[in-house]
């Protein structure tokens, strides 16, 4: 009787996944996420600080003259009033630092018509803060000077 040859059963190795590109992609995603997080996450602009901070600011020597040198009003039609006078909005970035330099507390007063777009008001607050205003006081006017 002829000997039966035993068939060698080859063990097939399980395919190994190539994890190189996978980890590269994950790392890239992670880095991208970390870099973009400041632009995704919301922050804020203070319009009312804590009472303690406010009190510190309020303590002032008795002065008859107001320290506020920047008083801006935005009209619904886009007209901007600076210290009760119509003013070219494009010239505001130049004039605001000069006016704030004359103020001790560097506070600015801002008001706007009810119909003004919220983004325009935020842009004005942003401009004031960028040009050195320590506080932007928001005021509600009963009567508007706008045409």
């Amino acid at each position: 009787m002829p000997k039966r040859r035993k068939k060698k059963v080859e063990k097939r190795e399980a395919p190994r996944p190539n994890l190189g590109p996978f980890s590269d992609m994950t790392t890239s995603l992670l880095i991208m996420f970390m870099l973009t997080i400041p632009f995704i996450v919301e922050s804020g602009i203070f319009i009312s600080r804590s009472l303690a901070t406010k009190r510190r600011n309020v303590v002032t020597p008795k002065k008859k003259k107001s320290d506020i040198k920047v008083n801006i009003h935005i009209c619904a039609d886009g007209t901007v009033f600076l210290n009760e006078e119509p003013f070219d909005p494009n010239r505001l970035p130049d004039i605001i630092p000069k006016l704030l330099a004359r103020s001790v507390k560097k506070q600015a007063l801002l008001s706007a018509d009810n119909d003004v777009i919220y983004e325009d008001v935020i842009q004005m607050i942003d401009l004031l803060k960028e040009k050195g205003a320590s506080d932007v006081l928001i005021m509600k006017r009963k009567r508007s000077k706008c045409p």
């Binding site: 400041p38 995704i40 922050s43 203070f46 804590s50 935020i122 942003d126």
Partner: peptide, 14 residues
């Protein structure tokens, strides 16, 4: 403000 909030901020994105 009527609700008693003393610290208020307007949300903005950088």
């Amino acid at each position: 403000k009527k609700g008693g909030a003393k610290r208020v901020a307007l949300a903005v994105v950088k």
